[in-house]
Amino acid sequence: MPEWIVIFYPINFLSAYVLYIYLYHRRKRIGFHLGMNISMAAGGGLALGTGIVFINLHPLYFLEATLIAVVIGCITGILFGNLFDYQTILTGFINGLIMGIMAPMVGAVAFEGVLFLIMVEIFIICIFIFVAASAYKA
């Protein structure tokens, strides 16, 4: 696996940070149903990206990959759910946890080539753009 896939970490974290700042000023106008879906998508997407890139960079460290993906998914879900309600915290937390457990197993598929990884990154960025667009309309 080539070494330049490290560049996916800053892309993921920077886009999640921009999304958080964008949502923070509009959080009063977003209802709880849209808020639940936003926290699920953000936590799950960031946990998936982190776990897949980590298991491809260091294939020997399965335990650390699972731990880091779970912790980042839980914290992201709690932070995005904290914008809206108490129950969106719970939903974002549990979805980040399950996606973080599943991410290293999905990342083991991508050992053959780098094309699958690029597609997953495009998917995550598109999910973030859809979330921002739906918050713009609300």
Partner: peptide, 20 residues
């Protein structure tokens, strides 16, 4: 999912991963 995670923890080579 718990069954899958436990099976991979016991033997990582069923998923294509090298030994931990």
């Amino acid at each position: 999912m718990g069954t899958m995670l436990g099976a991979i923890v016991l033997d990582p080579s069923i998923c294509g991963l090298p030994e931990s």
